[in-house]
């Protein structure tokens, strides 16, 4: 029922992307996101599409599985598209009374939808190919310099990895409670907006109760094992760069340079 939510989930496999150092992948995601906001015109679009296609191919994650993750943001995509389509000023192409559709509107709607879709697909490659543990390690190490100016890097990465870890647990819990209420004749699907919002109460109340209970249990379990933050903590498997990581950095640099070059020299 709710098992379709794939955002932030890990997909086990041992592709080349799975083996890369998490710091490389974090950097890669950053570069990829920047490139999404940098590219212009059809040539840039093609370059970014190619980059994404290569990434997905390398990750070894089935495309269908990734596309499922888009379902969760379908509403946002539609809303963004609509707003851009209808509210962008310019020469009207078609108009029904007060509603005007401009050429600029179509363009910006298409670009925004593509950008958002690529953003979600591309960044999900990071979480799909990296276990939450490695992700936390990578983030903590990559951001370590910020520690000196008083940013609690360890705590931030711990919070992030716990949040990621809890997504599947809460999804499962929601699924369970939903089924339990369905078994008592609850109806989550029919009726108008107000009725549907009301029908969420039997789902949300137990969900919140259980989320707090779980958070409490986790805090206790961490304290019972003497967790006291990142100070003086060592790793069993410290992160080490290998040759393929260097190669990946190089490819990233080339990709980014390519996107910039396209933006500067190719105007279409």
């Amino acid at each position: 029922m709710l098992r379709d939510i794939t955002i932030g989930q890990y997909y086990p496999s041992d592709s080349i992307l799975h083996q890369l150092d998490p710091r490389v992948k974090l950097m890669g995601t950053l570069v990829y996101v920047l490139s999404l906001f940098f590219f212009r015109g059809v040539s840039g679009f093609l370059a970014v599409t190619l980059g994404l296609a290569v990434l997905i191919r390398l990750s070894g994650v089935p495309v269908g599985y990734m596309v499922k993750g888009l379902k969760a943001i379908a509403v946002i995509l539609i809303l963004t598209g609509m707003f851009n389509l209808l509210l962008t000023p310019g020469e009207p192409l078609i108009s029904f009374g007060a509603v005007k559709i401009t050429e600029e509107g179509i363009k910006s709607a298409a670009f925004m939808v593509v950008r958002l879709t690529y953003l979600v697909l591309g960044s999900s490659v990071l979480t799909l190919t990296t276990t939450p543990n490695r992700l936390t390690d990578g983030l903590e190490k990559a951001l370590r310099p910020l520690n000196r100016i008083g940013v609690p890097v360890h705590e931030i990465s711990m919070i992030m990895s716990i949040a990621l870890r809890f997504i599947p647990i809460l999804v499962e819990e929601t699924d369970k409670i939903m089924k339990a209420q369905l078994a008592r004749g609850a109806d989550f699907e029919s009726g108008n907006l107000i009725k549907r919002a009301k029908s969420m109460v039997p789902l949300l109340v137990p969900l919140f109760v259980s989320a707090f209970r779980r958070a409490n249990d986790l805090a206790l379990a961490m304290e019972a094992r003497c967790y006291n933050g990142g100070m003086g903590r060592t790793k069993m498997k410290p992160l080490k760069y290998e040759r393929r990581d260097g190669a990946a950095y190089l490819l990233l640099a080339l990709y980014f340079a390519g996107i910039i070059a396209l933006r500067i020299w190719l105007k279409f």
Binding site: K176, A180, R184, P206
Partner: peptide, 17 residues
């Protein structure tokens, strides 16, 4: 059918609201 076949899940107390 769900009203004819009543199902009590594991830890059913978690569904009270």
């Amino acid at each position: 059918l769900r009203s004819k076949v009543g199902l009590v899940f594991q830890y059913p107390e978690h569904q009270l609201f």
